[in-house]
Simulated scan of single mutants.
Amino acid sequence: MDDTHMQIGEVAARTELSLRTIRHYEETGLVVPSARSRGGFRLYTETDVARLMVIRRMKPLGFTLEQMRDLLDATDRLESHDPLDADEREVLLERVRTYRQDAAEQVEKLRVQLARAEDFVATLGAHLERNAPSARL
């Protein structure tokens, strides 16, 4: 990935996260700026942005900060240049598979909720159409 550094404002715009949220994730150890400017400003890389996007995608699915940390740890270790033995690799892959399955289940629940919400909107629309002044003519 590109090693170009971005300040937190650009990262916030790219990830659609607030500055406060990014700082919170930094305080909790989920993301660490890759560098600091001479003036002490946080500097981030594309890798940091990708990490924040994983966090942003996990949040609406109800994952906790600890679960986010656990998944990021597993993916970091899998993508690391440090050698892993076959057993360790399989354990990490199983952790990722479990998170994938949990995410898929949450997405399905959200689909059901969305379908119910759309039905509700349609019901209200039908009610308005039946009771609009022009319908009484």
Rank of each mutant, 00 (worst) to 15 (best):
Asp2Tyr: 09
Asp2His: 14
Thr4Leu: 11
Met6Phe: 14
Gly9Val: 03
Glu10Lys: 08
Ala13Met: 09
Arg14Phe: 05
Arg14Tyr: 01
Glu16Gln: 07
Glu16Val: 03
Leu17Ala: 02
Leu19Ala: 02
Arg20Glu: 03
Arg20Tyr: 04
Thr21Glu: 05
Thr21Pro: 02
Arg23Thr: 01
Arg23Ser: 01
His24Pro: 03
His24Ala: 10
Glu26Phe: 03
Gly29Ala: 11
Gly29Phe: 06
Gly29Cys: 11
Gly29Thr: 06
Val32Phe: 12
Pro33Arg: 02
Ala35Leu: 13
Ala35Trp: 09
Gly40Cys: 08
Phe41Leu: 15
Arg42Pro: 03
Leu43Tyr: 00
Tyr44Met: 00
Tyr44Asp: 00
Tyr44Val: 02
Thr45Gly: 03
Glu46Phe: 03
Glu46Gln: 10
Val49Leu: 02
Arg51Lys: 09
Leu52Ile: 04
Met53Gly: 04
Val54Glu: 05
Lys59Thr: 07
Pro60Asn: 06
Pro60Ile: 09
Pro60Ala: 10
Leu61Cys: 05
Leu61Gly: 03
Phe63Arg: 01
Phe63Ser: 00
Thr64Asn: 04
Glu66His: 12
Leu72Val: 00
Leu72Met: 02
Leu72Lys: 00
Leu72Ser: 01
Asp73Gly: 13
Thr75Lys: 01
Thr75Pro: 00
Arg77Pro: 02
Arg77Gln: 03
Arg77Ala: 04
Ser80Val: 00
His81Cys: 07
Pro83Ile: 07
Asp87Cys: 11
Glu88Thr: 05
Glu90Phe: 08
Leu92Pro: 02
Leu92Asn: 04
Leu93Tyr: 12
Leu93Cys: 11
Arg97Thr: 11
Tyr99Cys: 07
Tyr99Trp: 09
Gln101Cys: 10
Gln101Arg: 14
Asp102Arg: 13
Asp102Trp: 14
Ala104Lys: 11
Ala104Met: 06
Glu105Trp: 14
Gln106Ser: 10
Val107Thr: 12
Val107His: 15
Glu108Met: 05
Arg111Ile: 05
Val112Arg: 14
Gln113Glu: 13
Gln113Phe: 11
Phe120Leu: 15
Thr123Arg: 15
Thr123Cys: 12
Leu124Gly: 06
Ala126Glu: 15
Glu129Asp: 15
Glu129Thr: 12
Arg130His: 15
Arg130Ala: 15
Asn131Thr: 09
Asn131Met: 12
Arg136Met: 10
Leu137Met: 14
